[in-house]
Amino acid sequence: MADLQDEPHPVGIGAEDLPVPAGPETKASALDRAAALLSVHPVADGCNTLVWTLRQSPYHDIDTPDTGVDTDIPRLRAGGVGAQFWSLLVPPQGRPGEDEAGDRVVSDTLEQIDAALTLVRRYPDSLRLALSADDMADARNRGRIASFLGPVPGRALAGSLGALRAFHALGVRILAPAGAPWAGETLTAFGHEVVHEANRLAILLDLAGCEPAAARRLAGASKAPVIISNTAAAALNPHPGNVPDEVLLAVREANGLVMVTFDSARTGDSLHAVADHLDHVRAVAGPEGVGLGAAFGAEPPVLRPTGLTDPSGYPRLIAELLDRGWSESDLALLTWGNAQRVIRDAEFTARRRSTP
């Protein structure tokens, strides 16, 4: 049974806050309904790369609207975002010619963690570090944006389970195996140990970027739900970052979560195209297996679907899905419920593994 603090409390978003011009009466009604839903079931966004961006351009103040980045606190609040997974991955092109499998990836990851913790401390009235599903609910109920750290790259473990435990102690709750030598064509013995230890620590495995066969193996090996923090449906667009239906089915079998990105190259260049991908993922992975992982957090120009250029566009997307016939209960799962459920299920698995 969910903890009592899972019960939602309105967080204050209203239709009057939305940066949307007046439209036909039916559309305005959908926007009103979207605002009302998001005030109780805000968005838990599975991917934002702002930490890396701020490390490159530390002069940004995200407490005020800032055209230099696509994410700031006013737009997060206008979009009804109540939880954010802050990606701690480092773009591979950042250090050409260096061996990213060695010490560099470890130090980069530690710097990313430090920058994320600094970000949360800098804006205590808006952000709250979240280590659990209870923290997620409590942050929402206090009007804060629950901030989860991760994923960190699986390569940063450097063959050490101690590194995984150290990342957990620093607050990391998500690990991305893609590119790690232990999660390639085969899941090595060390890879199985990583999965087991991640399950014991309630660290979610993020399969974004994994080859389909590796994603299926990892989903099958994990006793806790897995996630894909930012992707789209390969059946609609065969982009290499999108996942085929066989992976969607594997994630469904693992009671996991597939979070759809807002990347024009992967979804198409319109809000309607993103809604098409959400329709497909829901049809294959199920209503309890679909979520949102926009991958905002970059400096312009980045190609985003029209209407979804920054987090303030979330109400427009919810209004579109309402117009397509999504029920409010399914939308509550999409925005908040599915993300909180996979975190809580991972914690339940960890408690079982820790029981003598």
Rank of each mutant, 00 (worst) to 15 (best):
H9I: 13
A28K: 11
I62S: 12
T64S: 14
T53S: 15
P19K: 10
G12W: 05
L54D: 01
P8S: 04
L4Y: 00
I13D: 06
D61Y: 09
P8Y: 03
V40N: 04
H60C: 08
A28D: 14
D61C: 07
H9C: 09
V51E: 04
P42I: 04
T64R: 15
S29W: 07
L50I: 15
P24W: 01
L37E: 03
E16P: 00
G12H: 11
N48Y: 06
E7K: 08
S57Y: 13
E7S: 12
P65S: 14
G12R: 09
L31G: 00
P58L: 08
L38M: 11
P42F: 05
T49S: 15
V40L: 15
A44P: 01
A34S: 14
P10T: 01
D17I: 01
D17M: 05
D61A: 11
A34E: 03
S29H: 12
P58H: 09
P21V: 08
A30E: 12
A28Y: 00
H60Q: 10
R33F: 00
A34Q: 03
W52V: 00
D61T: 07
G14P: 00
P19N: 11
H60S: 05
P24Q: 02
A15P: 10
E16H: 13
L54A: 06
V40R: 15
I62E: 08
V40D: 10
D6V: 01
L50R: 05
D66H: 11
T64E: 15
V51T: 14
I62K: 09
R55W: 02
T49A: 15
H9D: 07
S57G: 00
V20W: 05
A30M: 04
T53G: 09
V11N: 06
A30C: 11
V20R: 05
T64M: 10
A36C: 06
T26N: 06
L4I: 10
S29P: 00
A30F: 03
P24V: 02
L38I: 07
I13P: 06
A15G: 00
G23I: 00
A22R: 13
P10N: 01
A30V: 01
